[in-house]
Every structure is written in C-alpha cells, then in structure tokens.
Simulated scan of single mutants.
Amino acid sequence: MGNDAAYWEWRDQILKAEYRAKGGEPCRVCEQPIPAKAHWKQRDRHVCSPRCNMNLNRRLNRRIERGEIERPPVFTPDPQPPREPRVFRTLPPGAPFPYEIQGYSPKPGDLVERHGSVTAVQRATDLPQHVIPWQVLPGENGQWDLDRVAVSIHVETGSAFYYVTDASWTPSSLILGSFLGLEHIGAFDPFEVGGERWQWYTEIIRDVDAEGNEYTWSAYVCGKESVPRLWTPAYVARSKRLKRESSSAASYAARMRKLGLEGEIERLDPQEIYERDGWVCQICRSLVDRRRVWPDMWSPTLDHKIPLTAGGEHTRENVQLSHWICNLHKGDRFLIES
C-alpha cells in the first residue's frame, strides 16, 4: 500500500483544506498562526510546521484504523505475460535491410544468427559457477553486480563474451571481454578453433521505432568478420528528412536576416510539402518532375504564398510547391486565386 501512488494521492485529498493558507490562519492542530513562508504543502493542509503536519497524518491513520474512513482498494496491475525468446536472423539477399533486430539489444534467451554463425545470450547467474571465469565473479570489493552481467555464447566454438548491462539488459560501456573456456582471449582479439578464425565484434545498428524515435541496437556477436555500424532504411529516411528541415529553416532564416525581416521560421521538410501538393506546381498548375534538381529551371522549389517581404512567414500554411522558373517569375507579387 505504501508504494501505491493512488493511495497517497487519496490521502493528500483528504488532508487538504478548502484553500491554500496565505499566512495568519490558525493551525488545524495547535491553532498557532500559519507562517506565510511555510511550505506550500503545509499551507495546503493548514498546519504551521512539519511537526503539526506529522500529527495531522497520525490523526488520519487513527481514523482509518477505527474504520471511520475506508481505504480505497489496492490497484493490482495485470501481470505481464512472459517474454518469448527471439531469434534474430540474417535476412535473404534483396531484403531492404540485412538483419533482424528489435529493441535496444538481445535479451537473455535470445539467439542472434549472422551469416550462419549463432550467438546465444544468457544471464551469467544462470550458468554453473564453476564455468564462470574468476575475472567475472564479484571480488572482495564487489566490483561486479553478477545479476547485471550477461554472457553471449558462440554456439560453434563455445567462446563466451561477458559484459555488464543496465536494467533493460542493454550492454553498458563496461566490457569484460571474451573467453575460450576459462582462458581470457581479450575483448576483440581474433582466435582459432578447429582451423577456423573467429572474432567477437560489437554490432551497432541505428533504427527508428513506430513513434519515430531513434534508438540504437547493440549486441556482442561472434563471426568470421565484423559488421560495420549500420543504419536501417527508416533511420536513413529520418536523417535525410531532419537534414532537409534544418537546411530549409537555416536558408530562410538567413534570407530574412539579410532582408532585415522578422517572422516565424517553422521547421518543415520541403519533400513533405511537395508530396502534399501532389507534385503539381501551384502557380502554373502543371506537373513538376521530381527527378530535376537545382539549378534546373524546372526543378521543384518552395514558394511563399504571401511573400516574405510582404510579411509572410515560413510555415506549412504559407508555402507551396512550384517550379523554380515559376517562383522567379512570380517574385514578390501576390497571385489571386481564381
């Protein structure tokens, strides 16, 4: 009950007076004047000091114990279903992106398959203690919290990579490195097993979630060659959009400063405006070829319906698609819609 936020909110509503004391009102406990500079919570409850506030709480507790006030029911959230382990595979040639990922990192029980090489992720505490290297075990100074140590195990060779994670099992910056059995082979040093050469590497992939927020997938994977940092198509598209927004806003801000004008500069993606207007020039009403680029006179550009020099602003409502030649011809004139 003590950790139930709804319960404490309920108590606060019971203890709160009709209005916040401004100073001089009598304390509900000792009847002394309430200082004008008392804490706002004490003034909300019309008590003069922390001591009286504590006594007010005790009075409420006694009333609850006597049954004069009924406590609200405890809210118990529905238990979350157990998470099913995932297998993150290498996708077939021709796929938009070569690898499966999800979230910030693989979690205990997951498998990461990369080009036929399989790495299994486990909790270090799930392993028998005699197979865990002494360098990983907590020392006299409690160097590691073993509950936060994860291990990636290479299925083909048995090599293990121990690392520290945060509460979500995402790898932290602290690396314990790779081992072959109980022998430490270095963090990312190549090693040979059965005549084949292997190497641990950090797989880092930038992606965007369903809400458009960027995140980084990171995993320790063993393979015959390392994989460079990768961006998913969604992340690339988002980066290009943000670059277009910044470039457009900076360009028009510089133009307005040069003209000595002031006005709103909204961050917007010109591509979004072009799509909104159906790739039709809003001045000559003919199609705009999206393949043309500046300085082609027929390339797409943003036109301000109300020109900047006439008080127009760089906002979605005031911009439209036009050919560059049409924009130049219009200049600072208003066009009357027919």
Rank of each mutant, 00 (worst) to 15 (best):
W10Q: 10
Q102N: 13
G94T: 04
T232V: 02
F334E: 07
R244C: 03
R285S: 02
Q42A: 12
G94A: 08
D303E: 15
M54F: 15
H304L: 03
S246I: 12
G311R: 11
C48R: 05
E317P: 11
P98A: 01
E65A: 14
G194K: 07
T76Q: 04
V149N: 04
Y104L: 01
R71N: 11
I153F: 00
E9L: 09
N55K: 14
H46A: 11
F179T: 04
S226F: 06
R291N: 13
F161V: 08
Q13R: 15
I185H: 05
Q199N: 09
S168P: 00
G331R: 13
R197G: 06
H46N: 07
K16M: 01
S159E: 04
R285M: 06
K243Q: 05
P233L: 00
I64F: 12
Y104T: 12
K243Y: 02
G331M: 05
H154P: 13
Y235T: 05
K243W: 00
T315S: 13
I64V: 15
P33L: 00
G260R: 07
G177W: 10
E313D: 12
V193L: 03
L182A: 03
I69K: 03
E264R: 13
R316A: 08
C326G: 13
R62Y: 14
S172M: 10
P300K: 10
Y99I: 07
I265G: 00
V164W: 02
L91I: 04
R11Q: 13
P270G: 01
R71T: 11
R291I: 11
E18V: 05
P98M: 02
P133F: 05
D189G: 02
R267P: 08
S248L: 06
K224T: 15
I205A: 00
R51W: 09
E31H: 15
K16N: 09
F161Y: 15
E196R: 05
A17H: 06
I265D: 03
F191L: 06
V155T: 11
P33F: 10
Y220I: 06
T170R: 14
C48D: 07
V47Q: 08
S338R: 15
P81Q: 00
K240P: 00
V149K: 05
E317T: 15
Y163H: 14
I336A: 15
W200Q: 04
W144R: 14
G212Q: 09
N53T: 06
L146P: 08
T315W: 12
